[in-house]
């Protein structure tokens, strides 16, 4: 036996047996990476697969169901399926409708929610508690239950298929969220700034415009994005009210109506990519603001 081997054995004996702490930490490291792989596989991969299927013709999908990377030819011809969806299946109209509905909903929501949130944070009035909590409670109300009476009223008024009618409904959902998020943000702002502005001769409205708003850009941005996402993704009321009038279909409804036997799956996936990409792009762009907004109790879903 060489000298070296003896030394090594001595060193082994001197080192204490692995403690429970070390064993567990080692195991935890392995498990952690396994879990990260699992989560990436289940969350990111389906979206990659959506992209993948959106460029491969259905014949190719049937023949090679597991082709993970599309051929170069398929990738360079990607515009074929997207063009078909956009122009042959009138997705341009749906995109226009969806943009119109979402952007107007966002604008009106902000226009009403910013002053409203200011009122419930800074002003004192008798019905304050009722108004702020009552509006928050609306959060819990089931959409489908409200849908039935609204369906009845809208049918009688001839408002079904009418986009402004839909926007009002969306606003009833986005206003409480926006009000709640903005209120929790306004509470973190120092009231002294506004008091100074008031003393210097601003009235409350110009204080909101000149002092509160510039300080709340991140919060307003995240509220705008959430409101946009809610309106952009919404499908229940679109199904209830717009199904009979194809000219006013929003993007989610249009995509749903495409889901029939006759339509190639490639087009379906191209449509899915078109509707998903704006949301995810916006989200990554504003991620910093958004995660905080989510935990501030926002967004119903």
């Amino acid at each position: 036996m060489t000298n070296k081997a003896q030394e090594r054995r001595a060193a082994q004996q001197a080192r204490p047996a692995l403690s429970r702490e070390q064993v567990e930490l080692g195991a935890a490291r392995v498990i952690k990476w396994l879990l990260i792989a699992f989560f990436l596989l289940t969350t990111a991969f389906p979206f990659y697969w959506m992209l993948n299927l959106s460029v491969r013709p259905i014949g190719d999908v049937l023949q090679y169901p597991t082709r993970l990377i599309p051929t170069w030819e398929q990738i360079s011809n990607f515009s074929e399926s997207y063009r078909a969806v956009l122009f042959d299946f009138r997705f341009t109209t749906f995109i226009g409708n969806s943009l119109l509905v979402s952007l107007i909903t966002v604008t009106l929501t902000l226009l009403l929610a910013i002053p409203g949130a200011y009122a419930v944070t800074r002003l004192n009035f008798r019905l304050k508690a009722l108004m702020s909590w009552g509006i928050l409670l609306v959060y819990m109300f089931p959409g489908i239950v409200i849908g039935i009476p609204l369906f009845v009223v809208y049918s009688q008024l001839g408002l079904r298929g009418n986009l402004p009618g839909l926007m009002v409904i969306y606003m009833s959902g986005t206003l409480p969220v926006a009000l709640y998020m903005l209120r929790s943000y306004f509470q973190t702002l120092p009231a002294e700034l506004e008091e100074a502005a008031l003393i210097d001769g601003c009235n409350h409205l110009s204080t909101i415009w000149r002092v509160v708003l510039p300080l709340s850009v991140p919060a307003v941005a995240s509220v705008a994005l959430y409101t946009f996402m809610i309106a952009w993704n919404e499908i229940l009321f679109a199904i209830l009210f717009l199904t009979d009038t194809p000219a006013s279909w929003t993007l989610p409804l249009g995509l749903r109506q495409l889901d029939t036997q006759e339509v190639p799956r490639t087009y379906l996936m191209a449509g899915s990519v078109i509707i998903t990409v704006p949301v995810i792009a916006l989200f990554f762009f504003f991620e910093r603001f958004l995660t905080r907004g989510l935990t501030a109790g926002a967004v119903k879903g």
Binding site: P46, F47, W49, W232, I235, L255, S272, I275
Partner: peptide, 8 residues
Amino acid sequence: PIISVVLI
């Protein structure tokens, strides 16, 4: 959007 995740 719910519709796209359902389709995938």
